[in-house]
């Protein structure tokens, strides 16, 4: 990343340049913030609903959509979003039947990756497109991309807020919620559509293969760290934003890929939270 190295050398001169002086860095931090906000909030409910793996699979379905879009000449993000939304809608309709169907979900995940490879091969043999999709390219975010990410982020957060009450009820007490007249299927479909948007957003920062780290790592850590629902959601968002921003900053300093840092930090957060919980419950006994 030549631009980043220039940034480092200029910090030593009199005109001290910080990373925020670079447009691409400001855009990266902005995109990271918009994406992490949604990923942290949505991820918490994904973990609560035991759907972490389904979220992972959704991003892979998106790969086929993004590469397919390239092939027919539309922006890959819209192909990605279209496919994740279609797949998440279908998952929502399946609802409870999805639980414990890891093999079926895994097969669809693999098939989608395979299709993506084929589409990519038909479109071009350029590896950079594939790398950007698979592992993210947060330093390549344009002003228009950021606007789209922010708009979609705000829309999905508002939607999540609107369904949060019945979502929590249906997640914790499905039988009781159903008895009180709540449509579990409706809640499930609405929530998974929001997950579809969140996944498509997260792919822009960390890529298809590493979505799990951003959506599940901070959320699972938050669930270990606090027993309060409200604090759990807030903590999950804070950890996701923290991991993303730190990852971007570390990438600037080390010139290693930001996706590597975000994935590492997301996983480290979970492991540290797990260790903390063990120590705490060990001390009580």
């Amino acid at each position: 990343m030549p631009i980043a190295t220039t940034g480092m050398t200029t910090t030593t001169t009199i005109t001290t340049t910080t990373m925020l002086d670079y447009d691409f860095m400001r855009l990266a931090f902005g995109a990271g913030f918009a994406v992490a906000l949604v990923a942290g909030a949505v991820g918490y409910f994904l973990v609560l609903r035991n759907l972490a793996f389904a979220g992972h699979a959704l991003s892979h379905v998106g790969f086929a959509g993004a590469t397919g879009a390239l092939l027919v000449g539309i922006p890959p993000f819209w192909g990605l979003l279209g496919f994740t939304l279609a797949a998440s809608g279908a998952m929502g309709l399946l609802g409870e039947k999805l639980r414990g169907r890891d093999v079926a979900v895994g097969v669809i995940l693999t098939l989608s990756l395979g299709l993506g490879v084929l589409f990519l091969n038909l479109y071009t043999s350029s590896a950079s497109q594939a790398t950007a999709l698979l592992f993210g390219n947060v330093f390549g975010v344009s002003r228009t991309d950021l606007a789209a990410l922010a708009a979609l982020g705000i829309a999905s957060l508002l939607a999540l807020a609107a369904i949060s009450r019945p979502l929590i009820f249906a997640t914790l007490e499905p039988e009781l919620a159903e008895a009180k007249g709540l449509s579990l299927r409706l809640v499930s479909v609405l929530f998974l559509l929001i997950v579809g948007i969140a996944v498509a957003e997260a792919v822009q920062v960390v890529g298809i293969l590493l979505v799990f780290a951003l959506m599940i790592g901070p959320a699972a850590a938050a669930l270990q760290l606090t027993s309060s629902l409200k604090r759990g959601v807030l903590l999950s968002v804070l950890l996701a934003v923290g991991a993303t921003w730190s990852g971007i900053a570390l990438a600037y300093v080390t010139d290693w890929p930001p996706s590597f840092w975000i994935a590492t930090l997301g996983s480290a957060l979970y492991l540290a939270a797990l260790a903390w919980r063990r120590m705490k419950s060990g001390a009580q006994r």
Binding site: R165, I168, L172, K180, G232
Partner: peptide, 18 residues
Amino acid sequence: GLNGRDFVASAYEGTRWG
């Protein structure tokens, strides 16, 4: 690891949107 109170509270008018 959710606490008992939040679990009980989830059912309070849990079918309302918002």
